Amino acid sequence: MYYDKATAALEQELRREEAKLQKIQDQAAEKKRKLRAVKSRLFATTKSDKWHAMALTAEARRIGFTGEHAEALFHLRNLSLSDYVEAVTPFANAKAEASILSVEYDAVRANYTDWTELGKHQHWDRARREYEAEVEGFKKWQAENPDKTSWRDKPATKNQYFLIWRTAEHLGIQQPLNLKCGEAHDWLDNHDANLRFRAALAAETDSQPVTAPPTNQPASKPVRDEAAQPKSSSSSENPDG
């Protein structure tokens, strides 16, 4: 075979350059893989409830709000606009240059006990209405799809058995066993088994009202927090001179 030194040198140089190119391409592919992984983690983070909660509450935490204020703040922010203005006005007047969050913090701190209870009741009432809507929605689906009954023949779920156990304990009756999903559903429905919305259970817990709270509960009048209000220059003077 004819051997040409110049040709062989060029072929070797070509292979070296191809190897360099392949290395660069491999490195680029690895960097793209890492980039996709970072983007995926970032996307997952910014789509998580935890990230949104932290982002939305960061400034509130800086002002002084904690998780213990959640129910009271929920009540304040779910007032009608006119009731909200009435509730925060005394605190806004006392700190005219303060931010809205700062004024809300003073108002919540001054009315913490009353507003916390009202907030709990509002959360409870909203959950009750959502539950009732879900129950009605399922009943409607059953009525519209009478032929779809395969779910009833499946074994009862752990959640169903848990609710059955709690309900049987609460009512003082025997707990049924070895139920199918449909039988468990019927038993729970017949025994009004969502104990969270039973007045008897509500009386046993601090977080639930004894009876369903009114949906249009008026806001309690804000109580002025002496620690949150600046004293006027005349407050320390003797009115009798």
Rank of each mutant, 00 (worst) to 15 (best):
R129V: 09
K154V: 01
S233V: 13
Q217M: 09
P155E: 04
D225T: 07
T215P: 00
D225S: 10
P209D: 03
A92N: 07
F138L: 11
E59M: 08
P90L: 12
L79E: 04
N178D: 13
H121A: 07
R61D: 12
K34W: 09
K140T: 15
A37P: 03
E71Y: 13
E30D: 11
V85I: 14
P239R: 06
V135S: 02
A199I: 01
A219R: 07
L14H: 04
S234V: 09
A8D: 09
S233E: 13
P209K: 02
A94H: 01
L195W: 01
Q208P: 00
D114V: 01
E204L: 15
L81Q: 11
A219K: 02
T46V: 15
W151M: 05
E183Q: 15
L163E: 03
A60I: 03
W141M: 10
A227E: 09
H69N: 12
K139T: 04
L14Y: 10
Y3R: 13
S80Q: 11
D206W: 08
E132A: 14
M1G: 14
L56C: 15
G241P: 06
D49K: 15
I100W: 14
L73Q: 08
Y2M: 02
K154P: 04
T7Q: 13
D206Q: 11
A227R: 12
A168M: 04
D147W: 07
A199K: 09
S236V: 04
T215G: 06
K39L: 11
P90D: 12
T45Q: 03
K120C: 03
L118Q: 04
E130N: 08
S232L: 05
Y3T: 07
L79F: 06
Y131Q: 08
T89N: 11
M54W: 14
A168N: 02
P230C: 00
A212I: 03
A6I: 11
Y3W: 11
